[in-house]
Simulated scan of single mutants.
Amino acid sequence: MSEHETSTDTCYLHPDREALLRCSRCERPICADDMIEAPVGYQCRQCAQGGQPVRRLGDLFVRPLVSQTLVGIIAVVYVVSMAVPLTRQFGLVPVLVGTEPWRLITSAFLHVGLIHVGFNGLLLWRLGEMLEPVLGHLRFGALYLAGLAGGALGVVGLAWLTAFTPLASIPLLGVVFATGPASVTVGASGAVFGLMGAAMAGMRARGVDPWRTDVGSLVLLNLVITFLIPGISVGGHLGGLLAGFVAGKVLFVDAGRARRAATVTFAAAAAVLLTTTLLF
């Protein structure tokens, strides 16, 4: 056996590791740690030396720092809220947003009960792992704010719609949608629904039917829960889902247009929050 021959199942540089593919230059099997991105395919370390600037496969992975940080903040706020009541001062009360607009944002970090915070935290963590490495930190942050803004608009808009239209008196619809300008809403659900909406938009952009995927099943399950379980913010969930889907269509672009897409999304989200404050 010559010095360049090795098992097709193991890396020729690390025989104790499984090979994932072959070097595009020498065609020897290599593992993930030795895969170097080249202009065409991936090369091993030896072939990549002296060539054009290259990156290791691990360098291409973007750690979901924004989503993990958000989960951490939500967890800390929840622990603090068990000792110091925060809902009344920082929860989303539609009748107060005109004079206390910060409630549109602070309410998204408050939760009632371990199941509430745990469910939202888990979804945010998993969806962040899916989306942030693809979008990058800046675009993911813009997406999260867009979902939060859409959810806040949905909560406030539905509250005033219930108060000033016959919606509450309509059988079934009144039970499902009815809320009020003085009701208190908390939770990151609007922003999380925004992430689900964006994931669906990204799949559609790539020619994938999202309803045939796990994401589609997740959205459908959460919509069923939204409409069947009393006390859940229908306006917040639907507003976040719609805002996230629209933001996803803007944000899933090539790297050359990423910063512009993030700027547009940040501006649109800020405009929605400002409009919600001024109108209601």
Results as ranks from 00 to 15, higher is better:
Met1Val: 10
Glu3Asp: 11
Tyr12Ile: 11
Leu13Gln: 12
Pro15Arg: 12
Arg17Glu: 15
Leu20Arg: 11
Leu20Trp: 03
Ser24Ala: 15
Arg25Asn: 08
Cys31Ser: 09
Asp33Arg: 10
Ile36Cys: 04
Glu37Met: 13
Glu37Arg: 13
Gln46Gly: 01
Gly58Ile: 06
Arg63Thr: 10
Val66Met: 04
Gln68Ile: 06
Ile74Trp: 04
Val76Pro: 01
Met82Gly: 14
Ala83Asn: 07
Val93Thr: 15
Val95Ile: 11
Val95Thr: 10
Val95Glu: 15
Arg103Asn: 07
Ile105Pro: 00
Ile105Cys: 01
Phe109Ala: 13
His111Ala: 15
Leu114Met: 14
Phe119Cys: 00
Gly128Glu: 00
Gly128Met: 02
His137Arg: 12
Gly147Pro: 07
Ala149Met: 11
Ala149Glu: 07
Gly150Arg: 05
Gly150Asp: 08
Gly150His: 03
Ala152Thr: 08
Gly154Thr: 02
Leu158Pro: 02
Leu158Gln: 04
Ala163Ile: 06
Ile170Glu: 05
Leu172Thr: 14
Gly174Ala: 03
Val176Asp: 03
Phe177Cys: 02
Pro181Ala: 12
Ser183Arg: 09
Thr185Leu: 04
Ala191Leu: 13
Ala191Glu: 10
Ala191Thr: 07
Ala191Phe: 13
Phe193Ala: 15
Phe193Ser: 08
Phe193Gly: 01
Gly194Thr: 02
Ala199Cys: 02
Ala201Glu: 04
Ala201Cys: 10
Gly202Val: 01
Met203Cys: 03
Arg206Val: 00
Asp209Tyr: 13
Asp214Trp: 07
Leu220Val: 11
Leu221Arg: 00
Gly231Lys: 10
Ser233Phe: 14
Leu242Ala: 15
Ala243His: 03
Gly244Pro: 05
Phe245Tyr: 15
Val246Thr: 07
Lys249Thr: 14
Phe252Lys: 04
Val253Trp: 02
Ala262Val: 03
Val264Ile: 15
Ala268Thr: 07
Ala270Trp: 12
Leu278Lys: 03
Leu278Gly: 09
Leu279Asn: 01
Phe280Cys: 02
